[in-house]
């Protein structure tokens, strides 16, 4: 059971299986962040418990929402990526040559090796997002968690970033949790999808192809949804509200996700 003081969603059972990508999809304000924080242990559960098959919490590489971070700090790209090594190194020890090498390797993997010494403020939004992914990889994670990684990105940049995540997932044998309100970020990349909307008390989880359907997405957004497969990829079109007589009240008032 998750929530801040009162339950946000119905009682839920959610697992992240090894080597899979779980997409957590829902409109703005649906409770995705609360779900994510509960999974990461940052928000105490109102009921139930977290189970770790390995007997310990996994090492997590976390990519926060970029706009929550202050890009004006006098830090270089390498400084930020090195932060990912902090918990691996433990207190009382300074970053050494090995940590710097790992951080540079993480930057090389995301194609930003030559920008290691560039100041943070000089990066574009997309580059900043990649640096945060490199920091997560530098933490040598078993689970990579990304919170709205493609918000404010154009479709091409979004695609490039998600392909990068997919490549990193394979290269490092990662499990991935991708929290987003953007359908395009989930369609084609997530192997499993959780649909979340606290306004409707909705929580459903299952294989991506079973979840990305007209019925389920229609329920999630309160709108007509058309789902099609084009060249092996799922495309989703959001239409008008299912219940126009409600006059835009409630969830249908939300900004709809864009077409995919």
């Amino acid at each position: 059971m998750i929530g801040y003081r009162t339950p946000l969603l119905p009682p839920l059972d959610l697992s992240v299986r090894s080597g899979t990508t779980l997409g957590v999809l829902g409109p703005n304000g649906a409770g995705k962040t609360a779900l994510l924080k509960s999974m990461l242990g940052l928000l105490p559960l109102l009921g139930g418990r977290l189970v770790f098959p390995m007997g310990r919490p996994p090492r997590v590489g976390y990519v926060p929402q970029r706009d929550r971070l202050d890009q004006s700090w006098p830090l270089s790209v390498l400084d930020v990526v090195l932060m990912g090594r902090t918990s691996l190194l433990g207190p009382l020890r300074r970053f050494g040559a090995r940590d710097r090498q790992r951080a540079r390797e993480a930057l090389d993997e995301i194609g930003m090796g030559e920008l290691a010494d560039r100041p943070l403020y000089a990066l574009s939004g997309g580059q900043h997002q990649r640096v945060l992914i490199a920091r997560a990889i530098a933490a040598e994670p078993e689970l990579l968690v990304l919170d709205e990684p493609t918000s404010a990105m154009d479709p091409a940049a979004e695609r490039v970033l998600l392909e990068l995540v997919e490549r990193l997932k394979r290269a490092h044998n990662l499990s991935v949790v991708l929290v987003t309100h953007q359908l395009t970020a989930v369609a084609g990349f997530a192997t499993e999808v959780a649909l979340v909307d606290r306004a409707r008390g909705l929580f459903e989880v299952g294989p991506a192809r079973e979840m990305m359907t007209t019925d389920r997405l229609g329920r999630l957004y309160g709108r007509e949804v058309h789902v099609a497969e084009i060249d092996g990829q799922i495309a989703v079109v959001i239409g008008p509200p299912v219940h126009p007589e409600r006059g835009g009240a409630g969830p249908s008032e939300r900004r709809p996700s864009e077409e995919a």
Partner: peptide, 22 residues
């Protein structure tokens, strides 16, 4: 001298620091 990297991490990005066990 002892905790500079931790102080920097929690100051810059407390949320990620917490997730990573700092």
């Amino acid at each position: 001298a002892l905790f500079f990297k931790e102080l920097l991490f929690v100051s810059y990005d407390p949320e990620t620091a917490m997730v990573q066990g700092v």
